[in-house]
Nucleic acid binder design. Structure first.
Lengths: 193, 193
DNA sequence: GTCTATAAAGCGATAGAC
DNA sequence: GTCTATCGCTTTATAGAC
């Protein structure tokens, strides 16, 4: 599919879909050309660092999206509960109810993790921090907030894996609904470890 | 590292570690030669179907291991609770407390899933079925058993992703302990979805 | 069964015309 | 900025000697 793009930032979403679908190693310049309509000349003009730079910028783009649409509301919303509700809605929309996979999770599992370890780590650490901050503001202790936040992010990742493995979107829907409900309970929603 | 191997079944574990570490697309015959000590001649003698056959046989080998060490005890142990305890011990040992990644999960996320979709699906479906059977035998309703089983498998996968992303084995340990404890509770351990 | 040699294709990346 | 042509290398896979 070819597409009229003007700036290089415009192609980052398309680029992201290619990496998402094929992984870092599985992504080739030919696939990127197919998805973006840009030849090698243009691609190397925009990204002199080649494939590695493309992936790094895609990860940065994703991180910026999550910061704006998920982490910031979790931290800054007047009502922390509203930030949490907004997070689940945004997660469901972003991952298309389980149709879309988490590129950062894919990178974390693959060998490419070594090259992007810092970005992968920061993404998940920031997510857990932001969610824990909201839970703390809502009344949880520091330790309890962190435990619940870690468990919630973990479940979202597991839901994406299992939903795709079983080819069953209902798995993702159930897991997201369960995590949402659990965060609305008052006590000990996440068992001791 | 070279290694004296006689039969082709002997190299499946080494082969599995290569796929685990590099993913399907990232695995090359050169890497396999390094890990097994076998040249292309031997590799194609054992696996005429090449890389795809190697991956398929590795997945079958993993499935056989889980069937014997995890699914069978869950289904057949006199005490279903003992089968569940044994499952968590085996999972912790198999994934080396989070150091090792789940190859089937890696395959599920990647583009290679298309080629191995049936094997990936069967692995997770069998796991959930076996765990649900144990929970049912222990007194849970059919629906509750299935919900808890799905949630538990999902959390193990999520723990592997997050533990590796954060490069923190304690994440895996906490998640496994929490899932273990939750299955020992009597009521509503998994929230409604 | 294992080796070396090699084929044929695809890879990331570069150069230079326009 | 985009194109074509091309380099140098790696890839999967095969052939044939031993």
């Amino acid at each position: 599919m070819s597409k009229a793009v003007s700036g290089r930032a415009d192609i980052l979403p398309d680029l992201g879909e290619v990496f998402r679908a094929h992984g870092y190693e599985g992504t080739t310049l030919a696939l990127i050309t197919d998805a973006t309509g840009l030849g090698k000349g243009s691609l190397y003009h925009f990204f002199p660092g080649g494939k590695e730079q493309m992936a790094a910028e895609v990860l940065a783009h994703i991180d910026a999206w999550f910061t704006e649409h998920i982490y910031a509301p979790l931290r800054d919303a007047d009502d922390p509960g509203a930030g949490i509700v907004a997070m689940f809605d945004a997660v469901d929309a972003y991952f298309r109810s389980g149709r879309r996979v988490c590129l950062v999770g894919v990178m974390a599992l693959g060998a490419s993790r070594d090259s992007f370890a810092a970005q992968v780590k920061d993404y998940f650490a920031a997510w857990i921090d932001a969610l824990a901050a909201a839970l703390r503001r809502r009344g949880d202790s520091n330790a309890m907030a962190r435990r619940k936040a870690e468990q919630t992010v973990l479940e979202i990742q597991g839901a994406l894996v299992l939903s795709r493995a079983l080819d069953d979107l209902k798995v993702f829907a159930r897991a997201l609904a369960a995590a949402r409900a659990r965060l609305n309970e008052k006590e000990g929603a996440v068992s001791e470890g």
